[in-house]
């Protein structure tokens, strides 16, 4: 952004202003247009975050005695949290889900597609982009329905595998693999678009010069292309981690966290505790842990990109 010096619109014929009134007008000049946004952000974003900090330390529930009269319980929710096997299970599953579907799956596949698409014809790129982006544009509930039909016992995959004798209920035998594949399918477009944009900034004469010097395609990739786009790689990793960490609808609609707790990631466990058992205080403690993790990744992202604000 270029810094713009602005002559503020003046009221016609306004008399000489005293210093305090001038300052007030200066404040109102930005406060009035920013006001509605500030009000909404404070009530509906900052409010809930602060509220979660408060209720995470209470025994707030929506049913039973504590719903009328919740009180401060100190770190009890957090002590319970880190001794809760189901929470630790959900945390590990979330970790596997993020590493498998975002860091390895979407990131690598997005980079590979962007790399091999470079320099291909427009039609080919259009078709590949179209299909990959379509999976991204589809609402998550529809994506879940697509994958459900693909992996279910009477689904398309078993129909294809039928003669090989491998048919099984994939959502039952491999629920984590199912949600990881579904999320790779849904999210790869984002990484692909980020890397296509980044690769278009890699100067082609540099690659050509290296090719003339006899560097193989692999060496050009490792020694020239990847170092040049490393900031994009890192910030892409942060962004997709943030998106994947909080994934709910896709998993909930596809496996519901099951069978049992076999694919119950932390957002689903939080949902179960807070909205099925109405343990709001306990659910908030979990929410707070997720917010802190999200905040750390978000801060790292801010450090990585060069923002011009």
């Amino acid at each position: 952004m270029t810094v713009t010096t602005v002559t503020p619109p003046r009221l016609a014929g306004s008399p000489e202003q005293g210093e305090p009134r001038r300052r007030l007008r200066g404040t109102l000049r930005w406060l009035v247009p920013l006001g509605p946004a500030l009000v909404l952000l404070v009530i509906f974003m900052a409010g809930p975050i602060l509220w979660s900090v408060y209720i995470a330390f209470t025994n707030e529930t929506l049913t039973g005695a504590a719903s009328v009269n919740s009180h401060f319980v100190g770190f009890a929710n957090f002590v319970k949290l880190f001794g809760d096997e189901d929470f630790i299970n959900s945390f590990l599953l979330t970790f596997i889900f993020v590493i498998g579907s975002a860091v390895i799956g979407q990131n690598t596949l997005g980079l590979v597609i962007a790399l091999i698409q470079r320099g291909r014809g427009r039609v080919l790129r259009g078709v590949v982009n179209g299909v990959v982006i379509a999976a991204w544009v589809v609402p998550e509930v529809v994506a879940a329905a697509c994958w459900y039909s693909f992996l279910a016992e009477e689904g398309t995959l078993n129909e294809l595998l039928g003669s090989l004798g491998l048919s099984q209920d994939w959502l039952f035998s491999a629920p984590m693999l199912a949600i990881i594949l579904a999320n790779i399918w849904r999210g790869t477009a984002f990484s692909m678009l980020v890397y296509s944009a980044a690769l278009s900034d890699v100067p082609s004469d540099l690659l050509e010069a290296a090719a003339v010097d006899g560097a193989s395609g692999w060496r050009r990739l490792v020694h020239i292309t990847l170092p040049l786009i490393r900031r994009s790689i890192l910030s892409n990793l942060m962004l997709i981690t943030l998106q994947t960490l909080a994934a709910f609808g896709l998993i909930y609609a596809l496996t519901g966290g099951g069978p049992g707790t076999a694919s119950q990631t932390t957002p689903l466990y939080m949902y179960e505790q807070a909205f099925r058992y109405f343990e709001i205080g306990y659910g908030s403690a979990m929410a707070l842990v997720m917010l802190v993790i999200g905040a750390v990744f978000s801060l790292v992202y801010l450090r990585l990109i060069k923002v011009d604000a």
Binding site: W51, L242, P267, L288, G294, F297
Partner: peptide, 10 residues
Amino acid sequence: GLPVTAIMVP
């Protein structure tokens, strides 16, 4: 960057 999912409980 903050996960909206997490804010839903509060």
